[in-house]
Amino acid sequence: MTGHRLRQALASLASVPVTLFGLVLVTFLIGRAMPIDPVIAIAGDHAPPDVIARVRLEMGLDQPLPVQFWIYLRNLLHGDLGHSVMTSRAVTEDIARFFPATLELATTAMIVAVLLGVPLGVVAAWRQGSRFDHVVRVFSLAGQSVPVFVLGLVCLLVFYAKLGIAPGTGQLDVAYEGLVPHITGMLVLDAALDGDWDEFWDAAAHLVQPAAVLAYFSMAYITRMTRAFMIEALSGEYIVTARAKGLSASRILWRHAFGNITVRLVTVLALAYAGLLEGAVITETVFSWPGIGLYLTGSLLNADMNAVLGATLVIGLVYLVLNLLSDLAYSLLDPRVR
C-alpha cells in the first residue's frame, strides 16, 4: 500500500468513531424525548410508586441527561450495551442472536439482486430503446415504486395462501423449531453444517420469499443505476475509438464500458447492501423473520431503549464499514486514486 492510500485509509478509519459518537448521541436524545415513560416498559402499568421509583433509580433516569449519556457511553466503551427489557438478556447477546438472521436474509437478497440486476442493466443499456430495454425499465421502476410490505403481503397471499407452494412466515416449520444448532446464527448455513438436510431445505424454503422480495427491491435500483452508468459510458469517445479499431462487441461492452463503471457501481452496491441490512425492517415484520429489524421494531414499541440504541448502533456500524470498504475498493479499482 502506498503512503497516499494508507493516509486515505487512516482518514476514513478516523471518521468512524466521530460518526458513531454522533449516532449514539442523536439516538440517545431521541430515545429520551419519546412520549413513553421507559419505566412503564419494565415495571408495567399496575406497578406501585415505590417499584416505579426504584426502577427509575436503577435505570439511572433520576440523573441529569448529560450524566445519563456519560454513563451509557462509559458502559458502551466497555462493551456493555445494557440489558433488554423485552428479552431479559444482554443487548450484545441479543444482537449476536438477531443480526445473523438479517445478515442471512440481506446477503441472499443481495447476491440475487447483483446477479440479476447488473446483467439486466448492462444488456438494457447496450440495447437502448429496444423492447427488452423497455421491459427492463418498467420492471425496475415497479420494483422501486411498489412498497416492500405490499409486495411481501402479495407474495404470501399468492404463493402461500392461494397456490400453497411456499411456506408461511418465520424461519422454520414448527417441526424443526429449536432443533437447528446455533453455530453462525444463519439457519440455512447452520442446518448444512449440522448435516441435517431436511432442516436445510426447510430453512432454505422459508428464506426464498423474504429474500426474493428484498432482492427485487434492490435489483430494481441496481438495474437502473447500471443501465444509466452504461449508457453514459457507451457514449464515450474511447468507445468510438474502440469500435473504430474493430474490437468485438463483447470486448467493448465488458472490458471497456463495464470496466469503467465498476467504481461507481461499487458505491451503488455498497449502499444497496447497507440499505438491505437496515431496510429489512419491514420485510422482517411481514415475514416474522427474527432479525435485527424485528428486534428494533419490537423494542421501539416497548420503549426498550437499550435495545433500540444497541440495534441502531449496529446498523450504523454496518453502514460505516461498508462505506469504508467501498472507499478502499475505489483505490483498488481506479488507477487515478492510487
Binding site: 447476491i111 411456499a166 431445505w201 424454503a205 426464498v208
Partner: peptide
Amino acid sequence: SASSLAAPALFRSAE
C-alpha cells in the same frame, strides 16, 4: 445470473 433464477425450485408444498 441464470443459476439464481433456479431459486424458485426451493419452493415446496407447505405441509
